[in-house]
Design a protein around this nucleic acid. Structure first.
Length: 311
DNA sequence: GCTTAACCTGGACGC
DNA sequence: GCGTCCAGGTTAAGC
């Protein structure tokens, strides 16, 4: 019989949500390379922001189905905001069964990462952060995005702690290139500022409006922007624009495709045709939520690559 | 339509 | 300590 462990006392009242049928693991979800500003404190509490909301999350480690404990600021007890951000409405249990039938070879891996959920992020932060992802490492992306937020984000407070909200488009458009370069943005610095300036000429809330378009149209719109290629566009579609069918094909996903669909997908340059072919094969195998399956397989592949480097 | 080089830079690794 | 390579890509030029 399982005994629930109580969350640490942190100076505020926790709320809880049941994850029995909606598995959730905080580490692979919050530190799995889809969002870059979540931090875990010494008590194991994850702190982060999304839009104007500040969140605290806590769960017993290694138990995807135990209750999630949470709180929100500045308005307390915003259950619907938490469930929206973590997409707790998505029945991953049913998806796991479907994927396991379609890809028995991947079933063990998919079950191991059953708690790795895809977040529903604030579009502008996701859009900006992934511009930093080109030819970079997760650790450096985290530092870069944090540097940007600390330099230009509005300060907010929750439970006696200080947070930096992600800047607005108007603020991003006026950032200093030198400041960004000092924060590891490198050659991406002028591009991210220029893109913010260009985006200001688009209709108000243009990024949010892409949520209403079909996946292929939203992706096409993003790829019209200088600096946004197919991979970054797919990341934004999957992690912020409600497009669970988007499959970002990076070096890790390419290796997975090599094993699932044939070695030819790992050979030579990743041309746009090859990219689209891999994404289509994932879609055919894993269905409408192929991006969610991809995220679990990606985490396993990344872990495998890291273990290989340590040997 | 494919390949290649350039773009920044911290960290890991070998020597 | 130093040199080299790699890392969640994109773009433009050359073939």
């Amino acid at each position: 019989m399982h005994t629930e462990i109580n969350p640490p006392s942190a100076g505020f009242a926790w709320q809880s949500s049941c994850c029995k049928n909606r598995p959730l693991s905080l580490t692979p979800t919050l530190a799995g390379g889809q969002a870059f500003r979540w931090r875990k404190d010494k008590d194991g509490i994850w702190w982060g922001t999304a839009g104007r909301h500040i969140f605290a999350f806590w769960k017993p480690e290694d138990n995807a189905r135990s209750n999630l404990y949470w709180q929100t600021w500045p308005e307390l007890n915003r259950r619907e905001v938490v469930e929206d951000y973590l997409q707790l409405n998505v029945d991953t249990e049913a998806l796991l069964e479907e994927w396991s039938r379609a890809a028995p070879d991947c079933a063990e891996t998919l079950h191991r990462y059953e708690g790795a959920r895809v977040l529903r992020q604030h579009p502008l932060e996701c859009f900006t952060a992934f511009q930093c992802a080109t030819c970079n490492t997760v650790m450096k992306i985290e530092r870069s995005v944090e540097h940007l937020a600390r330099g230009y984000g509005e300060i907010a407070e929750a439970a006696g702690r200080k947070f930096y909200l992600f800047p607005t488009l108007d603020v991003l458009a006026q950032m200093d290139e030198g400041y960004l370069r000092a924060g590891l943005w490198g050659y991406r610095a002028p591009r991210v500022i220029a893109l913010a300036q260009y985006m200001r000429m688009k209709p108000f809330n243009w990024l949010e409006l892409l949520r209403k378009l079909p996946y292929t149209e939203a992706k096409r719109e993003l790829q019209k922007l200088n600096g946004i290629g197919p991979k970054v566009a797919d990341c934004i579609c999957l992690f912020a624009l409600d497009k669970p069918e988007a499959v970002p094909v990076d070096t890790h996903v390419r290796k997975i495709a090599g094993r699932l669909f044939g070695e030819k997908y790992t050979l030579g340059s990743l041309t746009e045709n090859k990219y689209n072919e891999i994404a289509l094969l994932f879609h055919e195998k894993f269905g409408q939520y192929a991006g969610w399956a991809q995220q679990a397989l990606f985490l396993a592949e990344r872990e495998r690559a890291a273990a290989g480097r340590l040997q």
